[in-house]
Amino acid sequence: MCLGVPGRITAIDDAASLSAWVEVAGIRRKVSVACIVDAAHPIEACVGEWVLVHVGFAMSRIDEAEAEATLRVLAEIGELAVEREAMLTTEATA
């Protein structure tokens, strides 16, 4: 359910109706940014941002720092598992 795809806002289409152009892997579509703008974050600030698009609406801004942090954690978990395995194997052999 709730298919969402990451895309980048490339331009404002119509500021009054909170419509912007988003690009997903080179595919362009107009989306509403009504859910991600407020007084602190006007539509102009959205250009260049990565967002999660669902049924023609940008529903969330993607936090690049969090994305990097998640990928780092993923790599660490894998490395740890491999190390632990190696350690156990060494112990077993010893």
Binding site: L3, V24, I27, R29
Partner: peptide, 12 residues
């Protein structure tokens, strides 16, 4: 192609 993948991702 990247854009074909894009259409597939958008429309599931």
């Amino acid at each position: 192609r990247e854009q074909v993948r894009g259409i597939c991702e958008i429309l599931g």
